[in-house]
Design a binder for these strands. Structure first.
Lengths: 190, 190
DNA sequence: ACTAAAAAAGGACATTTGTCCTGATGGCAC
DNA sequence: GTGCCATCAGGACAAATGTCCTTTTTTAGT
């Protein structure tokens, strides 16, 4: 649920330190609630999260929200859109205050071309995401909320993110009312 | 839904042709219904589909089935497991008779290390899958069957796979009964 | 400490989906 | 043709989830 990636963070920190004019990678801050990327808009940068937590979510045409993942230290966002040359798939919003390395697309493409290490990091990250996303899609589709919720709570107990109840409901892809109902029935709390 | 990838197919064909002892890549055939990979088991090969269609699906502990995707010409299966070093995430089963290039993990890892072109193909394929899987997860979670079904039928009309009703239900992650109900209500047929 | 605003809880009812069965339909061996 | 098996459609009911609102609790500001 909260994805964290340390090798990635080191990698981008090194690239940051070694740059001459300091304009390929800059450090930026976002306060809680601010958006790093907006669904359907074109991204002008891609981001490595240096600190804080962001959530990536879809807003469907019926205004319902599905949270795809929470991204923590070392996670990258916006790279899929760059590689596929498409507008932003999700909105990415700071859940806590967030500090990022903001990278220009051109520089990132250049790195991709010349640096096999980056390629391998990315492949590993992508593979992990596919495993997670696909497993979760299957699980949430084939089980009732009760099961998904238990799984989510297990995950959450290992990390400690404090999420609003709305966020949890959106992560499960259900209404808050249904989430409350299940919590009550199971005698659980958050 | 049916994923097809031509550059990948050309790439692996070239590797196949150029090999000396012809043991890193071999051509194999699977008849309709046979399994290329089995969920939870370790894969000994990874596959490029040269012809035919395979379905990748999860079987959850409650015996329900979720079809993740249908893979066609040029699609690769088993590479995620290799990269993450995990047992098979899904079962992969031939929906039609299928011909594949079966590649040894060692050789594939070697290619990954030395060939940046392969890396870029893979990144592109992975990015596409993430887009698809994530969009579908969101869509199926936040809309009723009716909407997902319409989307599926649009997709299907552009390609022509003939799928059993059970497969369609599993792709939508719902019961056959519910699928029938919606088909009737919408006056649709397959 | 008091109030306004926000977040959370939950009642009542509607809709969607699942489960379990039964009855129809269509091959196919004999 | 007859009977058997497999597949499919759908009825009846149950369970899960959503919608719409109202009430309760928390939080933040002054």
């Amino acid at each position: 649920m909260l994805r964290i990636n340390h090798s990635f963070l080191n990698y981008i920190q090194e690239r940051y330190d070694e740059q001459d004019r300091k304009d390929n990678i800059i450090v930026k801050h976002y306060s809680k609630g601010q958006r790093l990327l907006s669904q359907h808009e074109n991204a002008t940068k891609l981001f490595f999260i240096q600190d804080g937590i962001a959530k990536c979510f879809f807003t469907e045409e019926n205004d319902k929200v599905y949270i795809l993942e929470f991204s923590g230290r070392g996670e990258i966002v916006g790279e899929i859109e760059l590689i596929k040359q498409i507008p932003c798939l999700c909105t990415v919003e700071a859940v806590t205050d967030v500090t990022v390395y903001a990278v220009t697309p051109d520089y990132f493409v250049q790195l991709l071309k010349q640096d096999v290490v980056l390629n391998h990091y990315l492949l590993d990250v992508f593979a992990g995401r596919i495993v997670n996303t696909a497993s979760r899609a299957s699980y949430q589709q084939l089980y009732t909320i009760e099961h998904s919720l238990k799984k989510l709570l297990e995950l959450r107990s290992k990390q400690d993110v404090m999420l609003s109840k709305d966020d949890i409901a959106s992560y499960l892809g259900v209404s808050t009312r249904s989430l409350n109902r299940v919590l009550k029935a199971e005698n659980l709390s958050l």
